[in-house]
Design a binder for these strands. Structure first.
Lengths: 274, 274
DNA sequence: CAAATTAGTTTATGCCGTAAGGAGTTGCAA
DNA sequence: TTGCAACTCCTTACGGCATAAACTAATTTG
């Protein structure tokens, strides 16, 4: 039985896993480029100018070639992005010591991942839900799972916990990445921007405080306000928001672990005969 | 002091908050369209064909106009997307009863939001971090906060908890939205796809089980496998993953609430001064 | 040396957002 | 009533995008 598109799938999997490919010596001019060179150039463009600036032309130009030259090595732009995605993941650390418990290891993993996303914000524009199945994605998965397995939770729960963790990290990173991009694009500092916007809000939404009492209360409590230590405030706040969210979530995981251990003990005591 | 781009900001805020605008009777042919019509058409296109198919031409066509006609009402495509974003949010429920406790209310909110995103997957492609400040975004914020404030947590923590909750909901929704899109685009059922891919994986990554022992263990435990109740498996699994993640996180919030209450009691007992 | 095969270029197609200018419509002042 | 200003909407055009198709030039194999 042959499934539609399987040929393309085979090609893309071969690229991702760097399968040996066709024989080494072939007629024709020798290749001046390679998949790896192109992927590296793509990552360089995306790092420097963002995902929006990643075009086949831009990547080709960085290599002194035309856009079309890339198509000899890579079937399409979306394949290139997949390759960039998996390749970039390779720079993540992999060994987390679980001697101090799974929680410390998972926290370190999440923080490293967070910082990784801040170094490569374009990664956040590649949907993690799309099924690429590259080697480094598996390395990353293996890495968290190795730490988290120490918790003793059943496999199904582990899978879901990892999913939720990933969502948290990506969401937090996206918030801060956006925060960083904004002043560059609008030419306004965070403070200027906030000042202008809140002035506009008051102008345009006269009944704000009546319509949104709780939001107003939050603002009066200082939950949304820059505290006049202007420069790195939003950044610091975002970092803290991430730490808090992660901590709260892991508290929840710890609760689940306790329940699981208790359940296992009870089942064990009742007589292990299943 | 005048900030760069403030004029544009004023225009977009006026549109978002539907400020009265210029006088009603004016020379020139009477407008056949309106901002609301255009926003509705945009949402219709995005709902039906996805964000990728949302072009000014497509929206204009749905209204029997050219793309350029829209620019009389809306300054740019990105403004239109912002308006669509805020407008769509209006369909979210707003009143959650906290009589049964904040947790039930917050859970219901998160589930409604999740289903909302599944109805309008294109919303997930609009970054929530970007600052639009439309009225319905504030309504949504007010809604969660009203429920969550019952927990008694301080404002700063509330803000971060809401952020993390949003990340969880969006991440989970994105996963399932992608899962739904895939079979349509590739013409393969989930099962076919999985079968083809795992065959390819074995072909291309011969040492998979040695390189990824924990992942392999997870798979052997059935954590990633379709259980042969083929049809709605991935969907059901995604739903369950969301429920688990949300539950775990809220367990963590409950722990924070207990700590907070205990701290307040201690401080109170120590003598309420200050 | 000729044939086959390949790398890379040029050119072209059909999308996209949107700038510019023009045609037709309407309200108001003269 | 006429003329003008303000307005909506259209056509056309520009520069960008991914990529298909045809071509040139380099290189190995027979």
């Amino acid at each position: 039985m042959v499934f539609a598109g399987q040929g393309d799938a085979r090609r893309s999997m071969s690229l991702l896993w760097r399968a040996p490919g066709p024989p080494q010596v072939r007629p024709g001019p020798r290749p001046a480029l390679s998949v790896d060179l192109i992927v590296a150039a793509g990552i360089a463009v995306a790092d420097a100018e963002g995902m929006a600036a990643l075009s086949m032309r831009a990547v080709g130009e960085r290599l002194g070639r035309t856009a079309m030259a890339l198509y000899t090595y890579v079937p399409s732009k979306s394949e290139l992005v997949d390759l960039m995605y998996d390749h970039a993941l390779a720079e993540l650390p992999t060994g987390y010591d679980t001697a101090a418990g799974w929680r410390a290891a998972v926290t370190a993993w999440a923080e490293d991942l967070w910082e990784f996303y801040l170094r490569h914000p374009w990664m956040l524009q590649v949907s993690p839900a799309r099924p690429v199945l590259g080697p480094n994605e598996y390395v990353m998965l293996e890495t968290v799972l190795r730490a988290l397995r120490e918790s003793g939770l059943p496999a199904g729960v582990l899978r879901r916990v990892v999913g939720a963790l990933t969502h948290l990290v990506r969401g937090a990173a996206q918030t801060i990445a956006e925060t960083r991009r904004a002043p560059v694009e609008t030419g306004m500092s965070d403070d200027e921007w906030w000042y202008a916007r809140s002035a506009l809000l008051q102008e345009v939404a006269l009944d704000f405080t009546e319509r949104f009492p709780v939001v107003t209360w939050m603002e009066s409590e200082g939950a949304y306000r820059s505290e006049d230590e202007t420069v790195p405030y939003l950044e610091r706040e975002a970092r803290e928001a991430f730490a808090t969210g992660l901590g709260v979530f892991l508290d929840g995981v710890e609760a689940a672990v306790r329940r699981n251990d208790a359940g296992r003990a009870a089942r064990g005591a009742r007589g292990g005969a299943r």
